[in-house]
Design a binder for these strands. Structure first.
Lengths: 411, 411
DNA sequence: AAGCTTTTTTTCGAGCTTCGAAAAAATAAT
DNA sequence: ATTATTTTTTCGAAGCTCGAAAAAAAGCTT
């Protein structure tokens, strides 16, 4: 049972609404916020003057708008120095951290390569902790309070987004990154799935395509998915959600990296395409990692003419098509954006994908099934993490109002 | 962007909360409602005395509770005469309507058999309209205002739940039942999917199993599904949702009733089991309908010993297992309740189902995958319709408060 | 350049709503 | 009959949103 609405919740929610409006619209005037939220001018005026007094919003430079008659609108914008967040993205052989100010601008960034597959558990943790320590100590953050850290990783997290349960990038599982980092730095941490963060980032692109319902599919060594439904990130009953790569394409079929048989990934992941392109048996042990340029040259060969390479991409397309179609039988069709190195070969995948999806119930009346590609996943993941952390600050900290905010400021 | 919360929304929401508490708890006292909603005693007192004055709630007979010291609690209950709803369930060869009072009690019921597959479009519509007319004219409703009609049908409805788009029970599609009935009787109508209503009904059973996350699967001539996630009925981007029966089990596999190949239904629907049990080719045209007793005797033969009948059930279990496993890869595992005639043969299905699901990513750590059966679907569907319609009245009409409610009373 | 028009923003009082504390009500225990 | 205990109602205080009116800040007109 949801809890009743108390009187002070009202202000909190409406403050959150105003912050959301400003974050989404960039530099709306008070009047525009009135229109967006449906609240009265008086209310918006009161709330925004509070937020300005608290140093959360500020009045924007009077940009030379198309000169209209009447008092000019004053744009409100997020005060970049109100807070900051840290994003940490851990992927195969790559660790990236970035500091982001409250307005969403990247202040500083650091990337380091490491051999995640062979690194011992403790060393991996230390690498992460030390990178966070370096970023937090950096002078770019001197003027900012870091209020949250978002940690994205390929694989699954537990239901409270505090522990990395399993990931393909290291044999070690059950690493409670949230607790580890919180203990080390005293800043709230959330652990997120990388594909979910891609979807969040696309949502913030704000275009029509990414408004209410869409799907982001990572085509990489593995296959991942982030789903947005009704404008909200969809996560299953636990927070892992979207293990699309392990839907069963063919019962007892090709060997997957996860040890099972017949998963989509075992047909459409990099290693699967590579395996098929080299004419290996579908039960051959998956390769550990395949360099991007090798995949690119595979795609070139496939484009050059018929042969095992082209067939491999076709198989990938077919697996993706049937599985997306099955998914659409349950959640209804939505636009799909393919992200990652595999997206660069989408021209090779698309024909078989469309044929397969057309044979499914979910894919038949497929006006709403449109595809887009986005080759770089790293930037998207970081963007998603940043927005997740920032909106958390908006909704759960700054929306609380001045007494709570001041208490926090002093701590 | 969600709209801001205005001041008068507050009362509306808290009234809705109180009504929900009473509907769910049966006969809670004001103090219990305080605990459930988290609102103060004063607020609950004010709201409930309003609701009583408006004839929506009433004080319950002082039941002889375990005599405690202190002023005894007065239970609040829904006033049965505050309103009524009509449920209409259209399924293969069967049309049922029932009148339900505001407290959820069935006032009157009517069932009629008709040959839905051969009936012309207009005749089918007339049958429905006339049955509603008879129920509305019945004297059991003399004291009640009928405020809503819920119409459940196998198949898909449009996104606003107003039109039946497609159904396997008649060749006619695109029948705007909501508009037809609203025009005829001036009462708001909603068109719902039968399996969704099964899930809603189970949710109202209120047991632990059916609280936050669970799935209802209809095993009948076709296969349907209703999903509840986080205590809410899950419907896809359009309102059809849960076309689980047409997830692809085997690409280019057995012929399905929908004309496509390889759907789950083509392995686990009544006609598929029948087809396999009779040793027919998997592309044999599906039978139109199979009487329940024929399915029961098929199950008996399968129980008697090995043979094509037992193999058929095993194939059904396997298809269901792989597909559920795939589904669980995306929405995470949840308890499953099988409903309908097929559920009576669950003992034959279960072993293969468990073997298959254990081979999937979603089914591996399967503590939360538990199964239950419920042979009768009709009662569940009606119950779900009733609760859907009644909660609509709670939330969207009675929650509005006395001015609006009085205006409605007069109309 | 002074006054007028237009648009945005702020101010102010009215009307709700919720809350906490205290009072009232209703019963069992003494 | 009185006391203790628990539930429910009453009442005043505080906070929020709203509409109307005022103030502010520009462009337009003469």
């Amino acid at each position: 049972m949801t809890v009743g609405i108390r009187h002070d919740d009202l202000r909190r929610r409406n403050r959150a609404m105003v912050l959301a409006a400003v974050r989404r619209s960039g530099q709306p005037s008070r009047t525009e916020i009135t229109a967006i939220t449906g609240l009265s001018h008086s209310t918006i005026s009161a709330i925004s003057s509070d937020l300005i007094a608290e140093g959360i919003l500020r009045e924007g430079r009077s940009e030379p708008t198309a000169s209209k008659r009447g008092r000019p609108q004053v744009g409100l914008q997020l005060d970049p120095s109100a807070a900051a967040v840290l994003t940490v993205v851990l992927s195969l052989n790559l660790l990236t951290a970035a500091a982001i100010d409250y307005a969403g601008k990247v202040l500083a960034e650091e990337t380091c390569r490491l051999d995640t597959l062979s690194l011992p558990r403790e060393a991996l943790i230390t690498e992460c902790v030390e990178m966070v320590r370096r970023r937090l100590g950096d002078r770019s953050l001197a003027e900012h309070r870091v209020l949250r850290i978002a940690f994205a990783v390929q694989g699954t997290a537990d239901s409270h987004a505090r522990t990395m349960l399993w990931t393909p990038i290291t044999p070690h599982g059950d690493i409670p990154f949230a607790d580890i980092l919180e203990k080390a730095f005293g800043i709230p941490v959330i652990v997120e799935n990388d594909c979910n963060m891609m979807a969040v980032a696309l949502r913030w692109r704000g275009t029509d395509r990414y408004r209410d319902d869409f799907i982001a599919v990572l085509l990489s060594h593995g296959i991942g998915m982030g789903i947005v439904l009704n404008g909200e990130l969809f996560i299953g009953t636990q927070s892992s959600g979207g293990e699309f790569g392990h839907m069963i394409h063919r019962p007892k079929g090709a060997l997957c990296r996860c040890g099972r048989h017949g998963c989509v990934e075992a047909y459409a992941g990099n290693y699967a395409i590579w395996r098929n392109a080299h004419g290996l048996d579908e039960n051959t042990e998956p390769a550990a990692d395949i360099p991007d340029d090798e995949m690119l040259s595979l795609a070139e060969k496939a484009r050059a003419g018929a042969g095992p390479e082209r067939d491999a991409y076709e198989q990938a397309g077919s697996a993706l098509g049937y599985s997306l179609g099955s998914l659409f039988s349950v959640i209804d069709p939505a636009p799909v954006t393919f992200v990652g190195i595999g997206a660069t070969a989408f021209d090779l995948i698309e024909p078989a994908l469309r044929r397969a999806i057309a044979e499914t119930a979910g894919g038949q009346h497929s006006e709403s099934i449109v595809f887009a590609t986005e080759p770089k996943e790293q930037i998207l993941i970081r963007e998603g993490c940043a927005m997740r952390a920032l909106t958390f600050i908006d909704q759960e900290i700054f929306a609380l109002g001045s007494p709570a905010a001041l208490a926090l400021q002093e701590s």
